[in-house]
Amino acid sequence: MAAIASISFHGVTQSSSERKICLPSPSPSRSSVSNFDAIRVRTTFSFRSISVRPSKSSSRFAVHCMSTGSEAPPVSETKLKFLKAYKRPIPSIYNSVLQELIVQQHLMRYKKTYRYDPVFALGFVTVYDQLMEGYPSDEDREAIFQSYINALNEDPQQYRADAERLETWARAQNSSSLVDFSSKSGEIEDLLKDIAERAGGNGSFSYSRFFAVGLFRLLELANATDPTVLEKLCAALNINKRSVDRDLDVYRNLLSKLVQAKELLKEYVAREKKKQAERAEPQKANEAVKSFLAENYDTRK
């Protein structure tokens, strides 16, 4: 069996020529995948991020500070909550990534500077959907998402809702309108203005890789993936473009390796099915002979 030992977020070559993030993959058999442990994907994430519980105010995109009021729970508690919420087995190619991811997001989630950010939420939803694309069951994939976010004491519905609102808005934009948000008024324009103000040093802002992915998702949906547009948007938001370029390359590298891992998984499943079919042939032949002999024996009688 082939094995993929690790997928790391370090030492990835930067590239500005391609910005589209996608993950086409096969849909392997659930029964074969569940017991398959030869292909493992290990990720090493390094997040520097913020976020928070949804606001009860009238603004759907309200961002405010999070006060836990007590000590942060240990990572083991968050992982246990996830395992208790979703008890079905997860194929190792997906489970390895999820376990690494939830540990790192736990550390981010319980920082004192933690803030909820809809662009960050869009980035996480985008990455999750890409990582889990091709999962044997769409229903299970969404159940895992719900369990994952709930384990972090967050609201999975808000993650999905905010991601959807941002995506809908981005589809109605173009290269110019997306970058020129500061001169316009609107719910999402105000959100971007707030990010720019905080990132410019007038408030608490912590850049993260999920934020970078969310940012590019906006550009992708607006059909504005030219590197010059990304550069202008980063400048308007007071975000370091080099960091965004680096983190987008890291995710592209991750997704590329996941595609390779899933191809190996697909080949493994196909081989197992072929072996099962080959083992079944002699048994079918024996049963046919027995049936023939039995019929002829009965006829002679």
Rank of each mutant, 00 (worst) to 15 (best):
S176Q: 14
G11S: 12
S204T: 15
Q130K: 06
L264V: 00
I39L: 10
F211D: 03
C22I: 11
E197Y: 07
T299N: 09
F82I: 05
D155K: 05
D247K: 02
L107N: 13
L107K: 15
Q158S: 08
R30Q: 09
E278W: 08
V179Q: 01
N296H: 10
L265G: 02
A224R: 02
E77N: 05
A85T: 15
T225D: 06
G186Y: 07
N202V: 00
A3R: 11
D129T: 12
D117Q: 08
Q283L: 14
R198C: 09
R88E: 14
R40L: 05
V103F: 01
M66T: 13
R271K: 13
A151T: 04
E100G: 12
H106R: 04
R19T: 14
T168S: 11
A3W: 03
N153R: 13
F82K: 09
E189K: 02
S16I: 10
L101W: 15
F45A: 10
Q260M: 05
L107R: 15
L221P: 01
I195E: 05
P118T: 06
Y110F: 15
S182N: 07
I39M: 10
S175M: 01
K193P: 01
I39F: 05
R209F: 10
I21E: 01
P26C: 13
Y116T: 10
C22K: 11
